[in-house]
Design a protein around this nucleic acid. Structure first.
Length: 289
DNA sequence: ACTGAATGTGGAG
DNA sequence: TCCACCTTCAGTG
């Protein structure tokens, strides 16, 4: 279930529940056993997310994790140590909490040079504060030079880091953009609006552990964060509020064959950028700029 | 451009 | 019961 908001919430949660502690590290499943032994007994200094990548610093050793499509990294109270189903690739056990990693695409020990080369390949991340101001221009540099469709470019992690299939479909709908518009024909001003929207949407997704793109839900969520009374700072910053606070609703994602909630035209799907794109042919037409 | 892995799980049939 | 999938990379045409 991972787009960028999930990984950032996970990093925050690991810091809160296991940060600073010396951990019992193991690989019940076995495939990571040798490396787990190297981490065993070391302090977890810091977990950091960038795009969909997670880095966990254990002194000079760095654990690099990418969940891929089906990976999961569950953090739970140590008392509820009922490990579900298959043994975990990686198990981190602290005094109060246990984290278990299953089915990751990447789980490897790396050095600082490796980390920097991963980061160097990533575009700006709407959830990374230093990128929030500069990201629109940095990503526009890439988009403006590309003939590829904007729907394709949005999934390219070297253009924008952290956006996945749901956010791409939904943000294109929110700005009524024809997904097949070549990057170079999109227009800088329109792209800036999309970027600024992502800078709002991904942090809200992180705060609520749920992708929110319907404007009524976005407004309600933003108000709860600003309000502070209904959502604690901690919850907002760590994504501690898990799911089911909002009904799962989208404009186009997985709505093939159903009428568009704005214009009534039938939502369509098509493979682009290797993934299923959902869009409304009525709202999302090519525009002259 | 397309295919197969990693391997959990919710929703369609 | 099946299978697509909020992902990416390595390996093949």
């Amino acid at each position: 279930m991972p787009e960028g908001h999930t990984i950032h919430a996970l990093a925050a949660r690991l810091n809160r529940t296991l940060g600073g502690e010396r951990l019992a590290v193991s690989s019940p499943q076995g495939r990571f056993a040798a490396d787990a032994a190297l981490l065993d007994g070391r302090p977890l200094d810091q977990a950091t997310a960038r795009g969909k990548h997670l880095f966990i610093d254990f002194e000079d050793l760095i654990l690099h994790v990418h969940l891929g499509l089906i990976g999961s990294f569950h953090v739970k109270h140590a008392v509820q140590y009922d490990s579900p189903g298959t043994p975990a690739r990686l198990r981190l056990e602290g005094r109060s909490h246990v984290a278990e990693l299953r089915g990751p695409m990447i789980c490897a020990l790396v050095d600082e040079e490796d980390r920097q080369s991963v980061l160097a390949k990533l575009g700006p991340d709407p959830l990374h504060r230093p990128d929030q101001d500069t990201g629109a221009l940095r990503s526009w540099d890439r988009i403006a030079r590309s003939r590829k469709a904007i729907a394709d470019l949005l999934l390219d992690q070297s253009v924008v880091a952290g956006v996945g299939n749901v956010y791409r479909c939904e943000v294109l709908f929110r700005h009524r953009i024809d997904p097949f518009t070549p990057g170079k024909e999109l227009g800088r001003v329109l792209w800036e609006r999309v970027w600024n929207d992502l800078v709002i949407l991904l942090p809200l997704g992180m705060a609520f552990s749920q992708i929110l793109t319907m404007q009524d839900q976005v407004d309600a969520a933003a108000e709860m964060v600003a309000d502070g009374s209904s959502l604690s700072i901690t919850e907002a910053l760590t994504g501690e509020r898990l799911g089911d606070h909002f009904e799962r609703r989208f404009h186009t994602y997985k709505r093939t064959g159903q009428p568009c909630d704005r214009c009534g035209r039938i939502v369509r799907e098509q493979l682009i950028g290797g993934r299923t794109l959902y869009w409304c042919p009525g709202c999302q037409r090519r525009r002259r700029r």
